[in-house]
Computed example of a mutant assay.
Amino acid sequence: MIDYNNVIFKTAVAYGLNIFSAVAILIVGNIAAKISKKVVTAILIKTGQEKTVVSFIGNIVHVVIMTFAIIATLAKFGIQTASFIAVIGSAGIAIGLALQGSLANFASGFLLLVFRPFKAGDIVEAAGVTGCVEEILFLTTVLISAENVKIIIPNGKLYSDIIKVHPKP
């Protein structure tokens, strides 16, 4: 005869341990993500990076660590995670191809903010135009020409061209 109380107890203990482990993985993952984000943010602030760059990289670190924690949690329940990883990779490729131009501008804007070949207030000649840099954004750079005309240049075009930074008068 089957002892149903014993079977139920063993099943409850097995699932209870899995649920406890999964919650622990998520909690530890969240704590690790927050600590990593703070450490990366502090390092980037110490190196003098722009606030937008610091925020962006900090958020990426947090999302990546939480993604790994969620995948580890799913694996704890016996769910095959290889398909999830493949879907995430495929989605990344599809999004990258769809946003190819915008991503090129974004990457160029990121490089402009990190390497700082020029900064706001500099007079630059690039992408066939000359003007005073008013603002460097992630996708575009805003110049003001000598005729007081606002010129908005995509960062991909700006970063791939020769950049001449004129001395201030």
Rank of each mutant, 00 (worst) to 15 (best):
residue 1 M to G: 09
residue 2 I to D: 09
residue 2 I to Q: 08
residue 2 I to Y: 06
residue 3 D to F: 05
residue 4 Y to F: 11
residue 5 N to M: 11
residue 6 N to Y: 04
residue 7 V to G: 02
residue 9 F to C: 00
residue 10 K to I: 00
residue 11 T to F: 11
residue 11 T to P: 01
residue 12 A to R: 02
residue 12 A to K: 00
residue 14 A to Q: 00
residue 15 Y to E: 10
residue 21 S to N: 10
residue 21 S to H: 04
residue 21 S to Q: 07
residue 22 A to C: 07
residue 23 V to L: 12
residue 23 V to C: 05
residue 24 A to P: 00
residue 25 I to D: 04
residue 26 L to H: 01
residue 27 I to W: 00
residue 28 V to W: 01
residue 29 G to N: 07
residue 32 A to I: 05
residue 33 A to K: 05
residue 33 A to Y: 06
residue 35 I to N: 05
residue 35 I to D: 01
residue 36 S to H: 04
residue 37 K to A: 07
residue 38 K to E: 10
residue 38 K to Y: 00
residue 39 V to A: 06
residue 39 V to M: 09
residue 40 V to K: 03
residue 42 A to L: 08
residue 43 I to N: 09
residue 43 I to D: 11
residue 45 I to P: 07
residue 46 K to Y: 10
residue 47 T to A: 10
residue 50 E to W: 02
residue 50 E to P: 07
residue 50 E to F: 11
residue 51 K to D: 12
residue 51 K to C: 01
residue 52 T to E: 13
residue 53 V to E: 04
residue 61 V to Q: 05
residue 62 H to P: 00
residue 64 V to G: 02
residue 65 I to L: 01
residue 65 I to A: 03
residue 68 F to T: 11
residue 70 I to Q: 03
residue 72 A to M: 14
residue 74 L to P: 05
residue 74 L to W: 05
residue 75 A to L: 04
residue 75 A to Q: 04
residue 76 K to C: 15
residue 77 F to Q: 11
residue 79 I to N: 01
residue 79 I to Q: 04
residue 79 I to E: 06
residue 79 I to H: 00
residue 83 S to G: 13
residue 84 F to Y: 15
residue 84 F to N: 15
residue 87 V to A: 14
residue 89 G to I: 14
residue 96 G to P: 02
residue 97 L to F: 09
residue 98 A to I: 12
residue 99 L to C: 08
residue 101 G to R: 12
residue 101 G to H: 12
residue 102 S to G: 13
residue 103 L to V: 12
residue 104 A to W: 08
residue 104 A to H: 11
residue 105 N to G: 08
residue 106 F to R: 00
residue 106 F to P: 04
residue 108 S to G: 03
residue 109 G to D: 02
residue 111 L to F: 14
residue 111 L to D: 13
residue 111 L to A: 15
residue 113 L to A: 10
residue 113 L to N: 09
residue 113 L to D: 09
residue 114 V to E: 07
residue 115 F to E: 15
residue 117 P to N: 05
residue 120 A to V: 13
residue 120 A to P: 06
residue 120 A to M: 07
residue 122 D to E: 12
residue 125 E to S: 09
residue 127 A to C: 06
residue 130 T to C: 02
residue 134 E to M: 08
residue 134 E to D: 14
residue 136 I to Y: 00
residue 136 I to H: 05
residue 137 L to R: 11
residue 137 L to N: 15
residue 139 L to M: 12
residue 142 V to K: 02
residue 143 L to I: 06
residue 144 I to A: 06
residue 145 S to N: 02
residue 146 A to W: 04
residue 147 E to S: 13
residue 148 N to G: 06
residue 150 K to D: 10
residue 151 I to C: 03
residue 151 I to T: 02
residue 153 I to A: 05
residue 156 G to T: 06
residue 157 K to T: 15
residue 157 K to V: 15
residue 157 K to R: 13
residue 157 K to P: 08
residue 157 K to S: 13
residue 164 K to V: 15
residue 165 V to L: 06
residue 166 H to M: 14
residue 168 K to F: 08
residue 169 P to T: 11
